[in-house]
Simulated assay, not measured.
Amino acid sequence: MSERALVELTIPGDAAWVCLVRRWVADALMVAGHRDVDGVRLVASELAGNAVLHTESGRPGGLMRVKVYEVTDALARIEVIDQGAATVPRSRRSGAEECGGRGLWLVEQTAISWGTRSVPQRWNLVWAEVSTLGVLPTPEFEDAEEALT
């Protein structure tokens, strides 16, 4: 099977739209025959939420674009294209007492692979490929204590 585009949305960069992104992505994949879309739903939510919180897309009048691809019958790719930011998205460690900062870590733990790249007009694209068979990659912890926090 060759990669196939399932849906592309251009939406306001507003937090109220993130739950709709989650639903549209899951619906598009289920209609295409994918069985387990929970991981994809989580990843789409985190990527769209990050675009709203950390990029120019989250400013009044901002936009973001979400694309869903079927890579194989068991693998989907989500792309979120935002209007750019001063920083590059990266996974980081959050302290045990911090309320946020775990979004890309969750993406990293759920996705088979993920990354970023610049696109025209100084926008950024963040992508992730996620299994739709309910198989998650094995998390890698530097030490046993980290697994417990």
Rank of each mutant, 00 (worst) to 15 (best):
H54C: 04
R90C: 06
L148Q: 12
H54N: 07
R77M: 14
I78L: 13
G84W: 00
E129N: 05
E145G: 10
E70S: 15
D14H: 12
S131Y: 09
E145R: 13
W114F: 11
C19T: 13
E108N: 13
E146H: 10
T149L: 13
V80I: 15
L53N: 08
R77E: 15
L6Q: 02
S118P: 01
E56Y: 07
A96M: 10
P137F: 06
D82S: 11
L133Y: 03
L63V: 11
M1Q: 09
V21E: 00
V119F: 06
R102L: 11
I112T: 14
V130L: 07
E56M: 07
L20C: 09
G13T: 01
P139C: 08
A26N: 04
A86D: 15
L106G: 00
G39C: 09
R35A: 01
A5C: 07
V71Q: 02
P12C: 08
R93E: 11
E108Q: 15
A44T: 04
R92T: 08
E98A: 15
T138L: 10
G62F: 02
D27G: 05
D38Q: 11
L20V: 12
V25M: 05
P120T: 07
P139I: 12
R4L: 10
S113Y: 03
L125C: 13
R65F: 07
L133N: 09
G61R: 06
G62E: 06
R93V: 15
G62Q: 04
V80H: 00
Q83T: 04
W17R: 03
E129C: 06
M30H: 13
L63S: 09
L133G: 07
G61C: 06
T72I: 08
L29S: 02
G39F: 07
E108K: 11
D14Y: 03
A28R: 00
W127E: 04
V66C: 08
D38M: 08
T149I: 14
G33T: 11
A15P: 02
G62H: 03
K67A: 15
V71C: 04
R22E: 14
P137K: 04
V71A: 02
D36G: 03
L53H: 09
T116I: 10
D14F: 04
Q83H: 06
G62N: 02
I112A: 03
I78V: 15
G101M: 12
G39N: 10
S2T: 14
G95V: 05
R92W: 08
L42A: 10
A15M: 13
G49Y: 01
R65W: 08
M64C: 12
G84N: 05
S45G: 13
E97T: 14
E97R: 14
T149P: 03
T55V: 02
Q109G: 03
E46F: 05
S118A: 12
V66G: 04
